[in-house]
Design a binder for these strands. Structure first.
Length: 1094
RNA sequence: GCGGGAGUUGCCAAGCCUGGUCAAAGGCGUAGGGCUUAGGACCCUAUCUUUUAGGAGUUCAUGGGUUCAAAUCCCAUCUUCCGCACCA
C-alpha cells in the first residue's frame, strides 16, 4: 500500500490545517507523478482547450485573482471528468511598464512601496533588496504565483509554461504583428499621451504620484492679433467666439514673445508665426508638436489697452452684412486686465464673452465699477474699480455684451442673470462664480440654440451642443484655430516628482480597430461564440462597434521590438491577444525541439496557418488555411520548409498539436477585460486565423469584494492566496469563492464562509469514512452507482426509490448548470440540496427503524455520486473521500462524471408520494402550532377512491396541464364532460382543486395525473384523446394506480410517531367503521387528506 | 455624455431569461433548546403580521400597464455601482 493513500483516507483530526495540508500535498504529488494534466493530442477523444488570462507578476496572487483561475480550473476539471481531453495551460505576462516603475521606486527607496511589499505581500527585506532589477521582481512573483496555483490544485499543464519575454515568444509576437501589418491593419499617426519631461517617458496611472490617471482637456486655441503678433486664446466654448467683446490678460503676468513653427525650428522657419502667450503655455507648446523659440517678453500690463483684431474669418462672412455687429466688420476689441486669468491655464490669455460667461460679465462690471449713477454696482468692487486707470475704465465702459445664444429661462444676457442670482457678489474673485458658470454652461450646452440673427446667422438655430464642434471645425479649417491639449486635473506629477505635460507623439503605430470590415468579421465570430454568461454578449458587440485606432507600440518597457522599426516596442496588450496559440507549441520550445532562431515567420505560417503544406506536393487536398490568402507567402513557406533545419517529424508534431487543440474552446477572464483584452482577442483572431480556428467561447467573471468592500492596499484587506491556503486549505477556499456568487456578480468573500465550507467538507469526509468502514460491493471496482440497489428483498422501500429519483434529478441539474458555468448553482445542489435530500431519507429510515446494514448500500452509492460531482470543486478532499469510501487508486483516477442514467429511471410516482407525505406532516405540524394541543391521536381521512372529487380533480389536472388554468376555462372543460357536470354543484371545490394543483411542481402534477387512476376510468367513452396524451407520464403506466390511503397507512404512522409522539389512524372518506367525531372527513380532497387531532 | 449592471423580507444574497411549485433557497445575525458544565466548535427549532385547525393579510425601489395569475413580462420615474483607451 502506497503511503499517500493512507494519509488521505484518515479523518481530519484535531489539527485540521495539518490534515488539509497532508491531503493536498498527497493529491498534488500524485497528480504530478501521473502527469494527470499533461494533455497530448489524442484523436480518440474530443478535446477542450481552456485558457485564462495569464497573470502579470508584480504582486502575489490574492483571493481576487484566485477567483478567475479557480473558475477556469473547475471548468477544466469538469470537462475532463466528462471524458474530454482537456488542455489547461498557463503563462506569465512580463511585458509592460508597471514592473519597471516598481523597480525604479525600489531604487528610490520609496517607503510606501517597500512597506507594502513587506507588510502586505510578506516579501523579506533581503528579497526587497534585489528588487531594483525589474526582472528580479517579475521572477520573484512569477514563482510566488506559480506556487500558489499549484497549492490551489489547478490542473495546469506546466510543461507549456512561458513568459512573454522569452526569445521564442518574441518571435511569435513578431510574426503576429508583421502579419497584421501585411494585412494593412496597422497604420501610423499622431497621438497625445501624458508625458514626464524629466524621464522622457509616457506616464500612465501607475507612474504618477497618487496613481492619478492623466486626463486631457481639449481646448480650441483661437488666434487674435495684436501689432503683428498672434494672440491665441484657449477656450472650451468655441461657439461663443461670435460674442467676444474683449480679451483678458493678467496684468501681473509677464508674457513671452515666441516664434512658433509646426515643423522645422521656430527661429529659422520662414513660415514661423510670432505669438504672445504665457511662459507656461510656451513651454507646453514645445511638447505639442510645435517648435518654439523665445524672442523676449512683454508685461501683461503693457498689453492692457491694446486693441486686438479678431480672426478675419469672422467678418468675411456675407451673412453678417445684414446686421453688422456693434463694432462693425474688421472691428478691434480692447485688451483688458483681469485677475482671474491664470497664466498656467491655456495660453494665459482669455477671450471675453460677457453675455454668456459670468466671470467675464463680472470682470467687466469690476472695471466699470465707478461709473456714475449705477446703483447695482456690487459692493466691494468699488475699491478695485477705483484703482483702474481712467483710460482702461473708459475702454471697459464702451464694451457692450453681444448675445448669441438663446436659452429658455434666460434673458438676452444670461451671464447677467446668473450673476444677479448671486447675492452681494464680491467681484470676479467671488468663489460663487465658479458654480454659476458651470450651471450656465451646462444649461446653454444642452438647451441653448444659436441665435438666428446677427453674427451667428451662419449657425443660426443650431443647438449649442452641435454648434460647439461645428464652429470649432470651421475655425480650424480656416487656420484661425488649433487644438490645444492640457492635463485636465493638473498638476499631475510623475513618481519622479516632475509635473507631467501632454505630449503629441507623431509617429505612433495603431491597430486600426476602426476598420469596418474588421468589425464585421468580429461580429460574425462573436455571434457564433458561446458567451458565458450570455448577458455580457451585447457588451462585446458594443465594444466592437465603439473601438477605433488603438496604439499598439510604445517606446519604453519590457517587450518585443517592432520588426520594422526598432524604436518601438509592441504594446503589452497587443502582444497578448493570440498567444493561446503559442501554448500549443511552447512545450516544444521548452524541451528544445525547436529553437528561437528557427522560429521565423514562415515557421508560424506553416504551423499555425497551414501554409506551404501542399505546394508542389503530396496531395493538394489541403487548401492553405490561413485567413489571408497570399500565394507568394505560400511559396516562401514551402521554400523555407525545405531548408529550415527542423526535422519533419518535429514540425509535423507541432502542426498536429496546433490542429488538434486549436481553436480555444473557452477563454476565461475578469469582467474588466471585456472592453479591451477579450475583444482584442476576438478581433485579432479573426484577422490572423482562418475561420475554423476562431475562438469558440468566452467566460467572464465579476470581481471579488472582501467583506463587502473593495480590496485595496490602503485598507489592508488584501489576503494573499498562499497565506489563506496555509490557514484554511485550498478546497475550502475554492468552495467559498464559488459559492459566494454567480459568474458575473461581484463575489463577496469572507473568512466565515471559508470556515463554513471547511466544516462542511470535514463532515462529509467523516461520513465517507463511516460508509467506507462497512465496505461495499463496489470496493476496488469502478466508481459508480452499480451497487445502488443492494437490497436483497424484492420491493425497495419507497424512500429508497425516492432518494434515487431525487439524486437523478440533482445529477442532471448539476450537469446542466456546469455546462453553463453556473457553478454556484451546481455547487449548491451538490452541497446543500443533496444534504437535505439525504436528511429526509435518514429521517424516514430512522422512523422505520431500518438497520444501518439495510441503508448502507444506497447511501454509499448516493454519496459516491455526490463526491464525484464534488471533484471539480474540491479536487483534493473529494479524492480523499472516494478513498475513504473504499475505492481503489485506479478507480479514483478515472472516476467519471455521473450520468443520471446510472441511477435508474426517475420515478415520478415515488416523488409525488413523498411529496404527499411531507405535506401531510407539514399540515399536522401547522395545526399543532396554531392550536397548541399536545397530540395523543392523529386521524387522517383520505378522499375516497371513487368519490366525485377524484373525477373532478383528475379533470382539473388535465385542464391545468393542458395550459387552461383559469376558473372559467376549467369549469368550461368540466361542463363538457358528461359525468363531471357534478362539478357545477361544488364550484368552491373546483376553485380549491385548481389552487392545490397550481401549488405543486409540474412533475408532481404529471405524476398525480398518472397516479389518479388508469385513463378513461371515469369517462363514459368518447374523449380518449386527452387521456392518451398523458397516460405515459410519470413512468407508472401499466402499474397499479397509486393509492393514497394504503401509502399513507403504511408510511405515515411511523414518521408521525417519531415526529409528534402520537399514534396515527388513516381512514378513507367513506369507510363504514370511520371514527369521525367532528365530521372532518368531508373536507378531504385528493392528495389533501382531512386531519383530526385529539 | 456613451455603454453595461444593480435596487428582494435585520444584513449578505438566490429567484427574474422559461409568469402559477414564492411569504420567497442559502448564509450571517438574533431567540430558544440540545450537546450535559473549555471553545468565536457542532446539532435542532424559530425568525413579515395575524390566527386555539392545516387559514388569512400585507410585501420583492416607486408609479402605471398586460394577465385568470407578476418579485418574475411591458412602460415611465427615482436611487446606486462599474468601464470609457495606449493601461495591466
Amino acid at each position: 500500500m502506497a503511503p499517500d493513500t493512507t494519509i488521505t483516507a484518515a479523518a481530519p483530526g484535531k489539527n485540521s490545517p495539518d490534515w488539509w495540508r497532508s491531503v493536498e500535498s498527497a493529491c498534488q504529488g500524485r497528480w504530478a507523478d501521473s502527469k494527470a494534466f499533461e494533455a497530448e493530442p489524442d484523436d480518440s477523444r474530443p478535446k477542450k482547450f481552456i485558457t485564462v488570462a495569464y497573470p502579470y507578476p508584480n504582486s502575489p496572487q490574492h483571493i481576487g485573482h484566485g477567483r478567475t483561475y479557480t473558475l477556469a480550473d473547475v471548468h477544466a476539471r469538469f470537462w475532463r471528468l466528462r471524458g474530454y481531453n482537456v488542455l489547461f495551460p498557463m503563462g506569465f505576462h512580463y511585458t509592460g511598464t508597471p514592473i519597471l516603475g516598481m523597480a525604479r521606486r525600489v531604487q528610490d527607496k520609496d517607503a510606501e512601496l517597500i512597506g507594502n511589499l513587506r507588510d502586505i505581500y510578506g516579501v523579506s527585506e533581503r528579497d526587497i533588496g534585489t528588487f531594483a532589477d525589474p526582472l528580479t521582481i517579475a521572477r520573484y512573483f512569477h514563482n510566488e504565483i506559480k506556487m500558489g496555483m499549484k497549492e490551489m490544485g489547478y490542473s495546469i499543464d506546466w510543461r507549456r509554461e512561458f513568459t512573454t519575454i522569452d526569445p521564442a515568444y518574441s518571435k511569435f509576437v513578431e510574426w503576429q504583428i508583421s502579419t497584421l501589418r501585411r494585412l494593412n491593419l496597422i497604420i501610423q499617426g499622431s497621438h497625445p499621451v501624458g508625458w514626464c519631461p524629466k524621464d522622457q517617458n509616457p506616464v500612465s496611472q501607475h507612474d504618477t504620484l497618487g496613481d492619478v490617471e492623466p486626463a486631457f482637456t481639449e481646448y480650441v486655441m483661437i488666434k487674435f492679433a495684436v501689432d503683428g503678433y498672434a494672440v491665441p486664446v484657449a477656450t472650451l466654448r468655441p461657439e461663443t467666439v461670435f460674442g467676444v467683446t474683449n480679451l483678458w490678460v493678467n496684468p501681473d503676468t509677464t508674457y513671452r514673445k515666441v516664434a512658433v513653427s509646426r515643423d522645422g525650428d521656430g527661429g529659422n522657419d520662414p513660415k514661423a508665426e510670432k505669438w504672445i502667450v504665457s511662459a507656461e503655455c510656451a513651454y507646453k507648446l514645445g511638447f505639442l508638436g510645435y517648435a518654439v523659440r523665445d524672442e523676449g517678453e512683454i508685461a501683461g500690463s503693457d498689453l492692457v489697452g491694446e486693441m486686438a483684431s479678431e480672426p478675419e474669418l469672422l467678418y468675411q462672412q456675407p451673412q453678417q452684412q445684414q446686421q453688422p455687429r456693434s463694432n462693425g466688420p474688421g472691428r478691434k476689441i480692447p485688451v483688458l486686465p483681469a485677475k482671474f486669468v491664470e497664466p498656467g491655464t491655456g495660453t494665459g490669455i482669455v477671450m471675453s464673452v460677457p453675455a454668456h460667461a459670468p466671470y467675464d460679465w463680472q470682470a467687466l462690471r469690476d472695471l466699470q465699477g465707478s461709473r456714475d449713477g449705477d446703483d447695482s454696482i456690487p459692493q466691494g468692487s468699488s475699491a478695485a474699480a477705483a484703482a483702474v486707470a481712467p483710460p482702461v475704465k473708459s475702454l471697459a465702459a464702451s464694451v457692450l455684451p453681444i448675445s448669441i445664444i438663446r436659452t429658455d429661462g434666460y434673458g438676452d444676457v444670461p451671464a447677467a442673470d446668473a450673476v444677479s442670482a448671486i447675492p452681494d457678489c464680491e467681484g470676479q474673485s467671488d468663489p460663487r462664480l465658479e458654480p454659476a458658470t458651470k450651471e450656465l454652461y451646462s444649461k446653454e450646452f444642452y438647451e441653448g440654440v444659436m441665435s438666428r440673427d446677427g453674427p451667428t446667422a451662419q449657425f443660426g438655430g443650431m443647438p449649442v451642443r452641435e454648434a460647439k464642434d461645428a464652429v470649432g471645425a470651421w475655425l480650424a479649417d480656416s487656420g484661425c484655430a488649433e487644438a490645444f491639449l492640457e492635463i485636465a486635473d493638473a498638476p499631475v506629477r510623475c513618481r519622479c516628482g516632475s509635473e507631467c505635460v501632454v505630449k503629441v507623439l507623431n509617429d505612433q503605430w495603431f491597430l486600426n480597430y476602426g476598420d469596418p470590415k474588421w468589425k464585421e468579421a468580429a461580429h460574425g465570430c462573436l455571434n457564433g461564440m458561446d458567451i458565458l454568461p450570455d448577458e455580457i454578449r451585447q457588451e462585446f458587440a458594443h465594444v466592437v462597434d465603439w473601438l477605433h485606432e488603438r496604439a499598439c507600440a510604445r517606446q519604453h518597457g519590457l517587450g518585443t521590438k517592432l520588426p520594422w522599426d526598432d524604436n518601438w516596442i509592441v504594446e503589452s496588450l497587443s502582444d497578448s491577444v493570440i498567444y493561446m496559440a503559442y501554448y500549443t507549441i511552447s512545450r516544444f520550445v521548452n524541451d528544445g525541439t525547436v529553437t528561437p532562431e528557427q522560429m521565423v515567420p514562415e515557421f508560424f505560417e506553416y504551423v499555425m496557418a497551414g501554409r506551404g503544406r501542399n505546394i508542389g506536393g503530396a496531395d493538394g487536398a489541403d487548401p492553405p488555411s490561413g485567413g489571408n490568402p497570399d500565394e507568394n507567402l505560400d511559396a516562401a513557406v514551402a521554400k523555407w520548409r525545405s531548408e529550415s533545419g527542423i526535422p519533419d517529424d518535429a514540425l509535423e508534431a507541432m502542426r498536429r498539436e496546433f490542429e488538434y487543440f486549436y481553436p480555444v474552446d473557452y477563454r476565461h477572464s475578469g469582467r474588466d477585460l471585456v472592453p479591451n483584452h477579450l475583444t482584442f482577442f476576438v478581433l485579432n483572431h479573426v484577422a490572423i486565423f482562418s475561420q475554423e480556428m476562431w475562438p469558440r467561447g468566452i467566460v467572464v467573471n465579476g470581481s471579488v469584494l472582501m467583506d463587502g468592500s473593495k480590496m485595496s492596499k490602503s485598507m489592508g484587506n488584501i489576503i494573499p492566496l498562499r497565506k489563506a491556503i496555509r490557514e484554511f486549505g485550498a478546497d475550502p477556499i475554492r468552495l467559498a469563492i464559488i459559492i459566494s456568487a454567480e459568474l458575473l456578480q461581484d463575489a463577496d468573500f469572507n473568512m466565515e464562509s471559508v470556515h463554513g465550507m471547511r466544516s462542511k467538507l470535514e463532515a462529509m469526509h467523516a461520513e465517507c469514512v463511516r460508509l467506507g468502514e462497512r465496505g461495499g460491493e463496489g470496493e476496488g471496482g469502478s466508481v459508480g452507482l452499480g451497487d445502488a440497489n443492494t437490497r436483497q428483498d424484492a420491493a425497495p422501500s419507497p424512500e429508497d426509490v425516492w432518494l434515487l429519483s431525487r439524486m437523478r434529478q440533482i445529477t442532471s441539474s448539476v450537469s446542466e448548470s456546469m455546462e453553463k458555468m453556473r457553478l454556484r448553482e451546481a455547487l449548491h445542489l451538490v452541497l446543500f440540496e443533496t444534504e437535505s435530500v439525504l436528511q429526509w431519507h435518514a429521517r424516514r429510515a430512522a422512523a422505520k427503524r431500518r438497520l444501518e446494514s439495510d441503508t448502507h448500500g444506497i447511501l454509499r452509492a448516493v454519496t459516491t455520486t455526490r463526491v464525484t460531482m464534488l471533484q471539480p470543486f474540491a479536487p483534493h478532499v473529494a479524492e480523499s473521500m472516494l478513498e475513504a469510501l473504499g475505492y481503489s487508486h485506479e478507480a479514483r483516477a478515472v472516476a467519471a462524471w455521473p450520468a443520471p442514467a446510472g441511477l435508474g429511471p426517475a420515478d415520478h410516482a415515488a416523488l409525488q408520494a413523498e411529496s404527499l407525505l411531507k405535506s401531510v406532516l407539514d399540515d399536522i405540524a401547522s395545526i399543532l402550532k396554531v392550536t397548541k394541543i399536545t397530540p395523543s391521536r392523529i386521524i387522517l381521512y383520505v378522499s375516497g377512491d371513487g368519490s366525485p372529487k377524484r373525477a373532478i380533480y383528475r379533470n382539473v389536472l388535465q385542464s391545468v396541464l393542458g395550459g387552461e388554468s383559469s376558473m372559467k376555462q376549467v369549469m368550461g372543460g368540466l361542463m363538457s364532460r358528461s359525468d363531471a357536470a357534478y362539478a357545477k354543484k361544488m364550484p368552491e371545490y373546483v376553485q380549491k382543486a385548481i389552487a392545490d394543483i397550481l401549488s405543486d411542481p409540474v412533475t408532481i402534477r404529471e405524476a398525480r395525473l398518472a397516479a389518479s387512476g388508469p385513463a378513461g376510468d371515469s369517462d363514459n367513452g368518447g374523449d380518449g384523446d386527452a387521456d392518451d396524451a398523458t397516460s405515459g407520464t410519470g413512468g407508472t403506466a401499466g402499474q397499479e394506480p397509486f393509492s393514497e390511503s394504503s401509502f399513507l397507512a403504511s408510511e405515515l404512522p411511523g414518521i408521525a410517531l417519531a415526529t409528534f409522539g402520537a399514534k396515527t389512524d388513516v381512514y378513507s372518506e367513506g369507510d363504514p367503521d370511520i371514527y369521525d367525531p367532528q365530521s372532518k372527513a368531508r373536507h378531504a380532497r385528493p392528495f389533501k387528506p382531512a386531519i383530526f387531532i385529539e
